[in-house]
């Protein structure tokens, strides 16, 4: 394998890992709990900014070309974990406002507005994260310690991404295979009936929302450590829609579906356009891509609303029955 290919492949692998994490998180919220979180990208951005300003050195001399809060030069893996914590805390704050008392469609509206506003604040408040120019030259985790070649570090980072991806998968998997998953799906399928069975609907939504927020934050923190830059342009509200399309294509309420969607939509589909010859005025290819993403979601919702890997029927074996009840069952 040539160095260029090795470099490219490792880059794609990191993107894949980040997108798998994000899709698993959103799937927990949307697929399992039925929350239309149109602000998902905001928690990813929060994680990325947090990790960035904790990794960056003090805002002086060498860094005086950009303004930001923090600048504590914290070592790996603290910035990534902090990114997750901030993503979760932000989700808790937004969830506290939107999830407690509002009906689902109103929640969707509020989330969309949150996403637009967050972009506006990060863009206008230059002192926070350097405004619309965003942060750059963010140090790569452990890059000074491991002392590898450029390509070597790329693969090292694939390893870091894989570890976080695995951790996220284990957490999500434990939730989605537990009795808690049934309660979440009950909230999704029939909110009032769930409440009538003693389920605290608002609290259950909150759990799913905050765990999703933590995962989003971690994914953002892992991503920013790799690309070393982050600006409002990277997380405009349509980006959340890429994840939704990924879930719709891959299959909602199924972890394998979320992972497949992450591979198909943000990685294979969006990466493949990189190889197209440039044509038309600037922005044309981007716009065409967005139209294609929108159409993809519509086409799947029309023809395959359950996605490539539909939600599984979870079969649970019954314990051996007493003879008489079996006979009764056969008569019915």
């Amino acid at each position: 394998m040539s160095t260029a290919w090795s470099f490219y492949l490792s880059t794609v692998m990191v993107y894949l890992g980040v997108n798998v994490m994000a899709c698993l998180g959103l799937n927990l919220q949307y697929g399992f709990t039925g929350i239309l979180n149109f602000s998902f990208i905001v928690y990813q951005a929060a994680g990325a900014y947090t990790a960035a300003v904790l990794t960056l050195g003090p805002h002086t001399a060498a860094m005086s070309f950009q303004r930001y809060i923090g600048g504590w030069s914290l070592p790996f893996p603290i910035p990534i974990l902090a990114g997750g914590a901030v993503g979760g805390a932000l989700a808790a704050a937004v969830g506290w406002i939107a999830l407690r008392r509002l009906r689902g469609d109103y929640q969707a509206m509020v989330f969309l507005v949150v996403s637009l506003i967050a972009t506006s604040v990060a863009t206008n408040d230059v002192g926070l994260f350097n405004g619309s120019a965003g942060l750059s030259v963010i140090p790569k985790p452990l890059s000074g310690v491991v002392g590898m070649s450029l390509v070597g570090y790329q693969w090292f980072y694939v390893g870091i991404t894989a570890i976080f991806c695995l951790l996220v998968y284990i957490v999500v998997r434990r939730i989605t295979s537990s009795p808690l998953s049934r309660s979440l799906r009950a909230v999704r399928d029939h909110e009032q009936a769930a409440a009538a069975l003693g389920k605290n609907v608002a609290a259950l939504r909150m759990v799913s929302f905050v765990v999703g927020g933590v995962i989003a934050g971690i994914s953002g923190a892992v991503l920013v450590g790799f690309i070393s830059a982050w600006s409002p342009g990277a997380w405009l509200y349509p980006e959340t829609f890429v994840f939704f399309t990924a879930l719709i294509v891959g299959g909602t309420a199924r972890n394998a579906g979320a992972a497949l969607g992450a591979l198909l939509v943000p990685v294979i589909f969006l990466e493949s356009t990189r190889f197209l010859p440039q044509f038309g005025p600037p922005g044309l290819i981007d716009a065409l891509q967005w139209v294609a993403i929108g159409l993809m979601a519509l086409v799947f919702l029309w023809f395959w609303p359950r996605g490539v890997l539909p939600e599984r029927r979870r079969i649970i074996a019954l314990p051996t029955l007493r003879k008489e009840s079996e006979r009764e069952g056969a008569q019915a």
Binding site: L36, F241, W290, G294, L295, L298, L301
Partner: peptide, 10 residues
Amino acid sequence: IIVTISMSLI
């Protein structure tokens, strides 16, 4: 709602 946001994007 997802259908309408798809239309918005398109």
